[in-house]
Every structure is written in structure tokens, then in C-alpha cells.
Design a protein around this nucleic acid. Structure first.
Length: 480
RNA sequence: GGCCCCAUCGUCUAGCGGUUAGGACACUGGCCUCUCACGCCGGUAACACGAGUUCGAAUCUCGUUGGGGUCACCA
């Protein structure tokens, strides 16, 4: 008898862009749902109105879509447990708070933040090492429901709270470490721990997958499930992604938004592949297709130790994705590089890009880079590297290039092997070496000193443009 | 500081009592070669430390050290 398909969720708070660490959490959730045929729910945790914005919601949804992490229920797609914005679920939270109060598991508290701050400072003055916890002043006291107040949950004095984490195993913390935490604010909005529990239960989430920074919240949430008489979901906490220096990853460490990598010209699978292998492994395999990832992923192979972000490795994984026609089919490659080309003022048909693609796949590390490698195929005349020109397009080269020009005019078939054979024969006849002519020819054809093989380039360029570029180079070489 | 978690090359990791401790990135020597790139061959480089358990520990236990997370009317 197999377990029912999981219901998992990703619950971002829309206070910025989709963070790379958040994307990994989303990915692990998504993989699990897709692997087992479950549902992936997207829920927007926007109960903090000051920090949430609509633009941010949009940015996150865009990033999710770009990564191909589609959700079965959530914003813009709806679902049986709508609404999926917590700001639209206030009435639900309110009634559940009332339920806990009525059951004697929570109480209204009229202590103000200022009062508590004062108490906190007083305690600190008395004993700098002491831990301040809410003393339960309002516990059992009658507080006028119409007067300003928060609602606090009653934490059991004794015992401990535990769960069996899918990744970390059993985690247990003594209840005396906790205080009567606030579940509803003065303004009537719920707090994270409370809203998450109510929603996860109502949305029938069976497994909560999130960052390890939530481990401290989990006991609160488990207590809440108990208080409601609900069965808690399973939990799987993920090790943290830290900065290269081992600090918590933040904007200070450069690019950390999914958007940043999109702008850099990374492919979605490049990003996903790197994230997947961060904290998870599958033998020695480094590069995965989306399907392979979905097949191979399992929480039993998720690590417990935090990791440091490595840009170089990330770039290499992205490169490996782009290099493989199997992982990045021509059509995908073309669709993604085309806009970058256009931004550079270059226009090319899919077929034209496709013809040059085999020559750049093993050279371009990202789509930005690809556009650079593609530039001379589509720019007429090509941009001439002046240093290269003055070094290689000299009178001596003009002679060689003129000879080659004559050799290739009207030559058939215009194919790499034939073109190369013709040149080799000429070298044989004249006693020149490939090294003498290669670089002048390359500079003539491409405007630069580094390029794919000469004959492959000539084929992509075609006879007319190849000869025209030779002519221009010969003129240039003569006047030098 | 309390609580919780973690600990294999610089980095991501394999390893789940017996291995010359493997792979990948990065770095590096060479090969290939018309340049660049890809590719191939090779090199430097790790079990944090200390006690146990065991015939035998990177693998199990405890301690030490180190690192991280969390302690809100944020999520």
C-alpha cells in the first residue's frame, strides 16, 4: 500500500524578488509533487502589509514561471482551497483565533509593546544574561474584546515538543524555552506561525518543505496543531544556502535573485540544476534534465549540513546545460538567445542562428556570451578588432588572402571538408604552412583572433559573404 | 547568552565498520590543434580535535573546538 500523493506548498512572502534560496525550496517542493503525482500549491504570505507589494508578487510569479515551476493551485490559477493570498483570508484566521480562545488555549493580552520593552530592559539591567519571556501577565485576566489587544497562545509549562523531520530526524525542544507567543496582532492580522498552520491544515498540506531557518518555528506550529486537535503534516527542513563567506545570503553578496541570473543569460535549467545539487546529490551525477531530476529526487538524499554558494560551479553547470543539444534543444537555445541578439541590434532568422549553433555551443557559457560569439555571423561588416587587424592584415597576408580569394571564388562544393582540402592542397603546392595563413584568414572572416574552425565559419557565412570579407581584408592589408 | 542543528579536498559532494577516501567546480602540468573552445591524460588538495566501542573506524557513542540557525505585535 503506497502513501497517497503528497500535497506540498511554497509560501513566499512578497517583499522582494524570488531569492535563489527560495527558488531551491520551491524546486524541492515541486520535484516531490511531480515525482509522486501530488499537488504543488503556491500561497502568498502577505499578512505583513507594510512589507508586501503587488509588484513583488508579480516578480515572484514571473520567476517561478521562467523556471518552469508550475503550480497546481494558487494565484492566477485558483483551486479548491482559494483564496491563496493570506490577506484575503482574514476572516478564516479570526474565527480560528476565536476557537482557540473559547477552548481556553489562547487569551487576549492588552500589554503594549512599550510595556514589554520596558520589562525587557529592566530584566537586562538586572541580569544581562537572562532570557526575557512574556510573563503571562494577561493569562487568566479578563480583557475587553473591544479594547486594543493581541492574542497569545498558551504554551504548556511542562514537557517538550517534537517532530520527526524528513531530513534531520527527530528534533525535540523543551516547552519551557517558549513563551506565550502572539498569534494575532493588535490590528487583527494573524502572525506567520498561526496563519501558516491554519492554511496548511485547511489546504491539506501533507508535507511542509522549507529552509532550516524555520526549525525554530516548527515547535510553535506543532503546538498549534495539537491545540486545534489537528494532525500535523510532515516536515522536511532544508540546509541553508550561505554566502561564499559562510554568512546568511543577502543582497550584499551580489546576485541572489533568480531575476539576476536570467538577466545574466543563464538558462532556467542551468539555475535549477545548480540548485538541485545544492544539499542534494545522486551519486556522482552532476548534470540533470528536468525529467531526470524529477525521477531521482528524494528527501533521503538531502544533506543536513549547510553549504556555501559557488558562482564558478554555478556558471559551469549552466554551461553544461547549454552545451548539450539534448538538455537544451536548438529551438530552446534559439528562442532564448534571440532576444539577446536583438538587444545588440542584430537580426537573424531561427535558421541562421541554428546554422551557427553547433559552432558556439561548446564556447558560450551563457546566452549573453552566446550573443557575443554569434555577433560576427550576423553583423555586416563584422566588428574589426584593430589590434588583430594591424598584427595579421599586413602586406604579406594580403598576398596569401588574394591567392585564397582566387582559390575559393566559384568553388564547389562549399563544404567544410572540401574547403579545407583545397587549402591544404594549395599549401602543399606553395610550401606555405597553415600557421602562416590561418590567423590572417580568421581575422579577415571574423574580425577577431579567436573563432570556431575556419572552414565551418566559411560554410555558415556562405560563399558570397566569405569572399566579400576576404576582399575587404585584402584592401585593408594592402594599405597597411 | 539560552535552545536547536551541522562538521570529508578552497567549494558542491560520494561514502552508510574493512576503499590506494571516489566524482565535479576551481587551480595547475601535458596532449589534441588553424586560433579559441570542447575533449583527453596527469597533478596539488579533505575525513576539525580528543576519548571510547570494535579484531578493525571518515562511518557508531561521548566530549572539545569550530560554524550556522533561531530567540518579534517579520516571514
Amino acid at each position: 500500500m503506497s502513501a497517497p500523493p503528497p500535497r506540498v506548498r511554497f509560501a513566499p512572502s512578497p517583499s522582494g524578488y524570488l531569492h535563489i534560496g527560495g527558488a531551491r525550496t520551491a524546486l524541492f517542493n515541486w520535484l516531490w509533487a511531480r515525482k509522486l503525482g501530488g499537488q504543488f500549491v503556491l500561497r502568498v504570505e502577505d499578512t505583513d502589509q507594510d512589507r508586501s507589494s503587488l509588484e513583488s508578487v508579480q516578480a515572484i510569479l514571473d520567476a517561478m514561471r521562467w523556471l518552469g515551476l508550475d503550480w497546481d493551485e494558487g494565484p492566477e490559477v485558483g483551486g479548491p482551497h482559494a483564496p491563496y493570498f493570506q490577506s484575503d483570508r482574514k476572516a478564516i484566521y479570526r474565527s480560528h483565533v476565536e476557537q482557540l480562545i473559547a477552548a481556553g488555549k489562547a487569551y487576549r493580552c492588552s500589554c503594549t509593546k512599550e510595556e514589554l520593552d520596558l520589562q525587557r530592559e529592566a530584566l537586562k539591567a538586572q541580569d544581562p544574561k537572562a532570557q526575557f519571556r512574556y510573563p503571562g501577565t494577561c493569562r487568566g485576566r479578563e480583557v475587553d474584546p473591544s479594547a486594543p489587544h493581541v492574542v497569545r497562545f498558551i504554551v504548556p509549562e511542562e514537557g517538550s515538543t517534537a517532530w520527526d523531520d524528513r531530513v534531520f530526524g527527530r528534533i525535540e525542544t523543551p516547552n519551557k524555552e517558549q513563551q506565550d507567543f502572539v498569534i494575532m496582532r493588535r490590528d487583527g492580522l494573524p502572525l506567520y506561525n498561526f496563519a501558516a498552520v491554519v492554511d496548511d491544515h485547511l489546504m491539506q498540506i501533507s508535507l511542509v518543505v522549507r529552509g532550516r531557518d524555520h526549525i525554530g518555528n516548527t515547535p510553535h506550529q506543532v503546538m498549534l496543531y495539537d491545540a486545534f486537535g489537528w494532525e500535523p503534516p510532515e516536515f522536511a527542513h532544508l540546509p541553508m544556502m550561505l554566502s561564499p563567506k559562510g554568512e546568511k545570503l543577502s543582497k550584499r553578496h551580489g546576485d541572489i535573485a533568480v531575476q539576476d541570473y536570467r538577466a545574466r543569460g543563464y538558462s532556467p535549467m542551468g539555475v535549477l540544476n545548480y540548485l538541485a545539487r545544492f544539499g542534494w546529490s545522486f551519486g556522482d551525477q552532476e548534470i540533470f534534465s528536468r525529467e531526470e531530476l524529477t525521477f531521482a529526487f528524494d528527501f533521503s538524499r538531502v544533506n543536513r549540513s549547510d553549504g556555501k554558494f559557488d558562482d564558478k560551479k554555478f556558471a559551469d553547470v549552466n554551461f553544461a546545460q547549454l552545451m548539450s543539444p539534448k538538455l537544451t534543444p536548438d529551438a530552446d537555445y534559439i528562442a532564448q538567445v534571440k532576444p539577446v541578439l536583438e538587444a545588440e541590434g542584430l537580426t537573424a532568422t531561427d535558421a541562421q542562428i541554428g546554422a551557427a549553433l553547433p559552432l558556439i555551443r561548446e564556447r558560450a557559457r551563457d546566452f549573453k556570451d552566446a550573443a557575443k560569439h554569434l555577433d560576427f555571423y550576423f553583423r555586416e561588416p563584422p566588428i574589426m578588432d584593430e589590434k588583430a587587424a594591424s598584427k595579421f592584415l599586413v602586406p604579406q597576408a594580403a598576398e596569401h588572402l588574394s591567392a585564397l580569394r582566387a582559390l575559393y571564388a566559384g568553388f564547389t562544393p562549399w563544404e567544410a571538408e572540401a574547403l579545407e582540402a583545397r587549402l591544404k592542397a594549395w599549401l602543399e603546392e606553395t610550401g606555405h604552412s597553415m600557421k602562416e595563413v590561418a590567423q590572417p584568414l580568421r581575422v579577415a572572416l571574423t574580425g577577431r583572433t579567436a573563432s570556431p574552425g575556419l572552414f565551418e565559419v566559411m560554410v555558415v557565412l556562405g560563399e558570397q559573404r566569405s569572399l566579400a570579407r576576404l576582399d575587404a581584408a585584402i584592401r585593408r592589408a594592402q594599405v597597411t
